[in-house]
Simulated scan of single mutants.
Amino acid sequence: MNDLNIAIASADKSRLDEIGLALASAKRRLRVTAMQCAPQRLGAMSSQLSQHAADILVVDCRDGDAGALPVLEQIGIQYPRMAMVVLSSCESADFLLQAMRCGVREVLPSNADGAAFHAAIERIAAKAVKAGAQQEQSGKVLAFASCKGGSGATFLAANLGYALAAQGDARVALLDLNLQFGDAALYLSDGKAAATIADAVQDISRLDEAFLKANMMQVRFNLDMLAAPVDPARGLEIKPEHIDALIALAVRHYDYVILDLGRNLDALTIRALDHADTIFAVVQATLPFVRGAKRMLGIFESLEYPPQKVELVLNRFEKDAALSVKDLESACGASIRRTVAHEPHVAEAAANQGIAVMKLAGGSCIARNLENWAADLLGKAPVEESRWFNRILKRA
């Protein structure tokens, strides 16, 4: 995207002028088309969007009118390559989620200035370039999202990171992006992190490989972890652009970058998810988790993530559970590719001691599940098959 075609829609002509001026101060060459109409009547103006080949549609929902969102959803279906930006005075999480589900890419405040428009346009343009070029990153980004609180996503993120690092020389980074209540460090170490993500981004201009590593905890020679802030208030200092910079730097220096995102979906979390090659959505075999999974999968679909980007992971799996894997797949409308066994005594012992499961209980079912998961990601044979082959070689 070099020169961009932008259509702006508002029922108020003075608002069209204000938005046009703000866009004019953005640092990009833009061709702007103004359409004076209420957001709810945009469906009747879709021919203009087609005529002007709009790359971005900016819609003025000044009072947070959610009634316009279904119309935008239909326009998004009609023009899937056009990004939609909503201007709204409503900043509630509920409105943001509704907008995302309807395919809105960015929600900006009603009084957004040129800098805010420029930042949003650059994010949209960067995503379009990435999708078009389909260039492989040097490192893979794996994001863990919990479909409901208490899923064990953090436990899995930390222990999969250890399993990836332990099976060879792959360089692994674990970033704890649960900024208010993150505790990934507790699953791999009984020590206190000397620095956190808040320290790493405090002076973003200094961020380079050396500065990043200086703020990380070294779990083993090829596994580093960036801890969440101890003080939840410091998590509020972290902005989406900080997340962009951290992940962009990490993928240049690590083979695998694991993101532990927690439960909440907000602008910062979505920015991190945009970078992910694979999102592991963690569920358990209960109806509340099924409901949570269906909602989360719906949000991912509204964010235009391809189905192959998202994998459901069944944690605390029991063969005789009331809900079988097939039941869960049918209820969620998605397949479950990975399961991790339910061994509470093993998981609790590892968590209480701050030791990875593979290190504490290498022969446990959980450890084997994680080893095979890591082997699959690394393109290696399953662990049991590899051990069997090695025994055959020793006999020969």
Results as ranks from 00 to 15, higher is better:
345 H>V: 05
332 C>E: 00
376 D>H: 02
342 H>L: 05
357 V>G: 11
313 V>E: 04
336 I>F: 12
329 E>G: 12
362 G>F: 12
312 L>M: 11
358 M>G: 14
367 A>N: 09
340 V>Y: 07
337 R>P: 02
370 L>V: 02
329 E>V: 08
338 R>H: 14
339 T>H: 00
324 S>A: 04
366 I>K: 01
331 A>Y: 12
337 R>I: 00
364 S>L: 07
370 L>E: 04
316 R>E: 00
317 F>K: 10
368 R>H: 08
331 A>P: 10
342 H>R: 08
350 A>N: 13
330 S>G: 11
368 R>L: 03
352 N>V: 13
313 V>Y: 08
343 E>A: 11
316 R>V: 01
340 V>I: 14
326 K>Q: 05
356 A>F: 08
361 A>P: 03
332 C>L: 14
363 G>C: 04
327 D>H: 14
329 E>L: 03
322 A>E: 07
336 I>W: 06
341 A>L: 09
370 L>D: 03
319 K>I: 04
357 V>Y: 14
353 Q>C: 03
315 N>C: 02
312 L>A: 03
362 G>A: 04
376 D>N: 00
359 K>W: 12
348 E>D: 03
318 E>H: 14
357 V>Q: 12
320 D>F: 12
311 E>S: 09
328 L>F: 10
341 A>N: 03
358 M>N: 14
326 K>L: 14
357 V>E: 11
350 A>V: 04
360 L>V: 09
314 L>E: 07
318 E>C: 15
356 A>L: 12
335 S>I: 10
317 F>I: 15
343 E>W: 03
317 F>M: 12
328 L>G: 11
356 A>R: 06
337 R>C: 00
360 L>W: 13
327 D>P: 06
347 A>R: 09
357 V>F: 06
346 V>D: 00
319 K>E: 05
364 S>P: 13
347 A>V: 10
326 K>V: 14
313 V>A: 00
364 S>T: 10
367 A>D: 02
362 G>V: 07
361 A>E: 08
311 E>G: 03
351 A>N: 13
324 S>G: 07
371 E>I: 08
317 F>S: 05
318 E>Q: 12
363 G>T: 01
365 C>Y: 05
312 L>H: 03
318 E>M: 15
376 D>E: 01
362 G>P: 05
314 L>S: 11
334 A>P: 13
329 E>R: 07
334 A>V: 01
356 A>T: 11
336 I>P: 14
323 L>G: 14
324 S>Q: 01
341 A>D: 00
363 G>Q: 07
320 D>G: 15
314 L>I: 07
334 A>N: 08
349 A>D: 06
345 H>N: 01
333 G>A: 00
354 G>P: 05
348 E>A: 15
365 C>W: 05
327 D>A: 05
372 N>W: 02
361 A>Q: 03
345 H>E: 10
310 V>K: 02
359 K>H: 09
351 A>T: 15
318 E>Y: 11
375 A>S: 10
333 G>M: 04
373 W>S: 05
346 V>C: 05
315 N>W: 07
359 K>T: 14
342 H>W: 07
375 A>N: 09
372 N>H: 01
365 C>E: 10
367 A>Q: 00
315 N>M: 04
360 L>G: 06
373 W>L: 09
351 A>C: 11
368 R>A: 01
332 C>Y: 12
